[in-house]
Amino acid sequence: HYVEVNGKKIQATSAEEAEKIAKKFAKIYNATVLDLGNYYKVT
Rank of each mutant, 00 (worst) to 15 (best):
T32G: 06
E4V: 12
E16D: 09
A31F: 09
A18R: 01
K27S: 11
Y29W: 10
A26M: 07
V5N: 01
K41G: 03
A18C: 07
K41I: 15
K23D: 06
A31H: 07
A12L: 07
I28N: 05
V5K: 01
L34H: 08
N38F: 12
K27W: 13
A31D: 01
Q11D: 08
Y40A: 02
N6Q: 08
G37L: 06
A22L: 04
K20W: 13
Y29D: 02
E17G: 05
E4K: 04
N30L: 07
G37M: 05
F25S: 00
L36W: 03
I28Y: 14
A18G: 01
L36D: 03
S14K: 02
H1T: 08
V3F: 02
I21E: 01
A26C: 06
D35G: 05
K8P: 00
I28Q: 10
Y40I: 08
V3Y: 03
V33R: 01
L36S: 04
Y39I: 08
N38R: 10
N30C: 11
K24Y: 15
V5L: 09
V3S: 00
H1Y: 15
T32C: 15
V33M: 06
Q11H: 14
K9N: 06
V42K: 03
D35V: 14
H1R: 07
G7H: 05
Y40T: 04
G7P: 00
S14M: 04
I10L: 08
K9F: 13
K9G: 02
V5I: 13
H1I: 12
I21M: 11
T43L: 13
T32R: 09
A12T: 12
G7C: 12
Y2L: 03
A12F: 10
F25P: 00
V33A: 05
A31L: 14
Y39T: 07
E17S: 08
K23M: 13
I28V: 09
Y39D: 04
D35P: 06
K24I: 14
E17F: 07
Q11L: 14
T32L: 11
K24L: 15
G7N: 05
V33I: 12
I21L: 12
L34P: 01
Y2M: 05
N6K: 08
K27C: 13
E19S: 10
Q11N: 12
A12K: 02
L34D: 06
L34V: 13
K9A: 06
A15N: 09
Y2K: 04
G37C: 09
V33F: 06
N6T: 04
K9D: 01
N6M: 14
K8D: 06
K9V: 13
V42D: 03
Q11T: 12
T43R: 07
A15D: 05
N38C: 13
T43G: 08
K41D: 03
Y39E: 03
N38T: 14
E4D: 07
K41A: 07
K23F: 12
E17N: 08
Y2C: 09
I28P: 02
N38S: 13
A18P: 00
E17A: 10
A26F: 05
N6P: 02
E19R: 14
I10Q: 01
S14V: 02
Q11S: 12
Y2W: 15
N30P: 00
T32W: 10
E4N: 04
K9Q: 08
L36Q: 06
S14R: 03
V42Y: 03
A26P: 00
F25H: 01
A22R: 02
F25G: 00
A12N: 01
A18T: 00
T13L: 11
Y40Q: 02
Y29N: 04
K20S: 11
G37D: 07
S14W: 07
I10R: 03
E16R: 12
L36A: 05
K23I: 12
N6F: 15
Y40C: 09
E16N: 08
L34K: 07
K23T: 09
V42G: 02
E17Y: 06
V42T: 01
N6V: 05
A18E: 00
Q11Y: 15
E16T: 09
D35I: 14
E19V: 09
K24W: 15
K20N: 10
A15F: 08
G7K: 04
A31S: 08
L36V: 06
E19C: 15
K9Y: 11
A15G: 07
E16G: 08
L36R: 06
L36C: 15
G7L: 04
K20C: 15
H1N: 07
E16H: 10
A22M: 04
E4Q: 07
T13E: 12
G7D: 04
E19N: 08
D35K: 15
N6L: 14
G37Q: 06
E19H: 14
N30H: 13
T13F: 12
A15W: 12
L36F: 14
N38G: 15
V5S: 00
K24P: 00
Y29R: 04
N30I: 04
V5C: 10
T32S: 10
V33Q: 01
N38D: 11
G7V: 01
A22C: 08
G37S: 05
K27Y: 12
G37T: 04
T13Q: 13
A22I: 03
I28H: 10
K27R: 12
T43V: 15
V33K: 02
A26Y: 05
I10M: 06
D35C: 14
E4G: 01
T32Q: 13
Y2H: 04
V3L: 05
Q11I: 13
V33N: 01
A31K: 03
I10W: 09
V42Q: 03
L34R: 07
N38M: 11
L36Y: 13
I10K: 02
K24A: 14
N6W: 15
L36P: 00
V33S: 01
I28S: 06
A18L: 03
V5E: 00
D35Q: 15
K8S: 08
V3D: 00
T32I: 14
A18S: 03
I21P: 00
E17Q: 11
S14D: 07
I21R: 01
E16Q: 11
A12E: 01
Y39H: 09
V5F: 14
V5G: 00
V5A: 03
K24Q: 12
L34I: 14
Q11P: 13
Y2I: 07
